[in-house]
Write a protein that binds this DNA or RNA. Structure first.
Ligand SMILES: [Mn+2]
Ligand SMILES: [Mn+2]
Ligand SMILES: [Mn+2]
Ligand SMILES: [Mn+2]
Lengths: 218, 218
DNA sequence: GTATTTATTTTGATTAGTCAAAGTATGCTG
DNA sequence: CAGCATACTTTGACTAATCAAAATAAATAC
């Protein structure tokens, strides 16, 4: 079995891969995994030897099929565990990411199958992120609109929060912008970098443009 | 935080400690943890330096208060997780031990508290083993009768199976001797080493004397 | 098109955990 | 009590994962 370090590397590469032939730069991995760049170089070489990814020196890395398969299994565990913690154990959706970060490496296929069954094969996790199915198929998350690029003054629903950091989730929670919330965008001010929206059954909220891009809507 | 290796050493020592001043021999640990004796010596020295246990050369080890506290936390996680897997996720009680062996190191205090709450603060796990409470207090499991030393022909109930090995649990499962089962001991034959008992709503079962000692009754 | 900045790789060292094999202490046997 | 078997410890080596700091390559600036 892969160590949890290996699983974390693969999952991180999967999540940072931007397109079919995109190569994730080493620096991005070092940042995401909170290790120094030299460590990433060393680990990546070893993962490449194990056939889990391709490494082009000074270019970056790309998952192989077997690396991608493993990464999807870990991501599936992560997201199913998050869903389970929120739906069944009534944990706060803003704090389950950290928990899942550890549990994803300890949950066996057997336990995972029971959780999936228990939850009725959910399609998305509490953050709105799609859950890979048992065959490693991930719903295409490509081109959902965000608060940054959606139409103004149309009624919308939040579908997904694409930043798991405690601080951002706390903000989302406090302002009520969580998945499922109905709202509309009032105006964008590129000059000041601020966007204003109105939450149904809540007040008006101002948020920065980079932050707005992290909230997907439909 | 303690590594899972440290947690496994401490939990194993706790479970192998026979009395207040008993010292667990190194060989017992090596056997239980499936490592060579030299490894145990090395690890134990390091744990002793961290103040988690006392080590008398060529005598064995004994947990300190802080070591015992940590061991009880791990044991609590193990047994609550087992109970959860059986009661909530409907897993087979004979296979949850392995799963809990991994999950006990990944479940946080926060998640554990939710599980405990969800289950209604259970007192024993699916094997009938007592679950330490949140303050690290473990019900005295000292002197329960077993099939080996109980009265003959009295109606009894199985309370506990004190061997988690897959083979033994499979046998217990097949013959219906699991916790809760009602039965009585018909006769013991020290000469042949066989004990005969009758399961209520089942047939007559013969089992070896060492095996009989692993089944506690009341 | 040389110089500087930035990203990446290399090198040497460290920690946790492990094993094989050699060495040592202890307790049992005759 | 001497000899031996058993349990334990020591030593030297190894793997996985990491960091600090020096070296190098590539990109950018001037
Ligand atoms: Mn993780
Ligand atoms: Mn998520
Ligand atoms: Mn364990
Ligand atoms: Mn148990």
């Amino acid at each position: 079995m892969a160590t949890s370090t290996v699983e974390n590397y693969l999952k991180t590469i999967l999540l940072r891969t931007e397109g079919p032939d995109h190569m994730v730069p080493m620096g991005v991995l070092a940042e995401a995994l909170d290790v120094v760049p030299g460590t990433v170089t060393t680990m990546v070489k070893s993962l490449a030897e194990q056939g889990l990814l391709d490494h082009q020196a000074r270019q970056g890395v790309r998952l192989t099929d077997s690396g991608r398969r493993l990464a999807l299994e870990v991501l599936r565990k992560h997201r199913l565990v998050e869903t389970f913690l929120v739906r069944t154990l009534k944990m706060d959706w803003t704090e389950v990411h950290e928990e899942a970060e550890a549990l994803e490496h300890a949950v066996s296929e057997r336990v995972l199958a029971r959780i999936d069954e228990f939850l009725g094969h959910p399609a998305t996790d509490p953050h709105g992120d799609p859950i890979p199915d048992a065959n490693g198929h991930l719903a295409d998350d490509a081109e959902a609109a965000t608060l940054l690029d959606c139409a103004l003054n149309k009624p919308l629903r939040v579908t997904r929060i694409t930043d798991q950091s405690t601080d951002f989730l706390a903000f989302v929670q406090k302002t009520g912008l969580k998945p499922g919330t109905r709202l509309r965008v009032l105006r964008r001010e590129p000059a000041s970098g601020v966007l204003h929206c109105e939450v149904r059954a809540g007040g008006e909220i101002a948020l920065g443009l980079p932050e707005a891009a992290k909230i997907a809507v439909s």
